[in-house]
């Protein structure tokens, strides 16, 4: 499903975030990316939806070379992915439900079905009762679950999450991790960058150290 072939990523002026990374993620897998802060976990995840492009090497997603996709093709690549960002990137000027509706609007999903799907996604993460609330009214754990609901509402085949359990207390972190595990059980490929992969038992681990796989 995803192939990294001798990836290097340098940020200007001369920060090497990744070097010589080769890895493969197959259909149905649950994979964690672990490593110290600054090891390159976020960078590796960002290469998949084309948010960052590799300086060298090739990233293939379903056989497509992401690095060579033009600006106009990236949106269509991303529509088969669910992204949970490290900083969540929720929109605070609209309701919880409206946040979850956004990916469906982007893909041009018709109105009434979209509403039903968004509610189903919120239900799955236990946030349906808070649908009308504004995101600021949610706790940290609830905001994280909202970010997950938004990432899965369009039923992507691939879920990418960047430290989704950071800043959560142990119990909440376990809940959130459980949601990812559930999605993986129904066939979604899940790739999680995390400092604590004990939350994801049975996951395959990719260990990064200063931009290299170990």
């Amino acid at each position: 499903m995803i192939q990294f072939d001798r990836i290097a990523k340098r940020y200007p002026p001369d920060i090497t975030a990744l070097s010589d990374v080769s890895a493969e993620i197959a259909a149905g897998e649950l994979v964690t990316i672990v490593g110290h802060s600054g090891a390159g976990k976020s960078t590796l995840l960002k290469l998949i939806p084309g948010i960052e492009r590799p300086t060298a090497g090739v990233v293939l997603v379903n056989g497509q070379n992401v690095g060579s996709l033009g600006h106009g093709a990236l949106p269509y690549l991303r529509r088969n992915m669910g992204l949970v960002f490290q900083d969540q990137k929720l929109l605070f000027d609209r309701s919880v439900l409206a946040n979850v509706l956004l990916p469906l609007e982007i893909t041009g999903f018709p109105g009434r079905d979209a509403q039903r799907r968004a509610e189903a996604a919120l239900d799955k993460v236990g946030l349906l009762p808070r649908a009308k609330a504004l995101p600021v009214a949610l706790s940290g754990g609830e905001q994280q679950r909202l970010a997950i609901a938004r990432a899965v509402v369009h039923r992507p085949g691939l879920l990418l999450a960047d430290e989704p359990t950071a800043y959560l207390d142990a119990a909440t972190a376990r809940d959130v991790a459980g949601i990812f595990i559930e999605f993986n059980r129904v066939g979604v490929v899940v790739l999680v960058a995390t400092y604590d992969d004990s939350l994801f038992p049975g996951a395959r681990r990719l260990q990064l150290d200063h931009g290299r796989l170990t």
Binding site: P75, R78, L91, P103
Partner: peptide, 16 residues
């Protein structure tokens, strides 16, 4: 700005 950025990350086209 934020809405534009998030939409782009979530797969919105320039046209959208």
């Amino acid at each position: 700005q934020r809405e534009v950025e998030v939409s782009w990350l979530l797969g919105a086209t320039d046209g959208f």
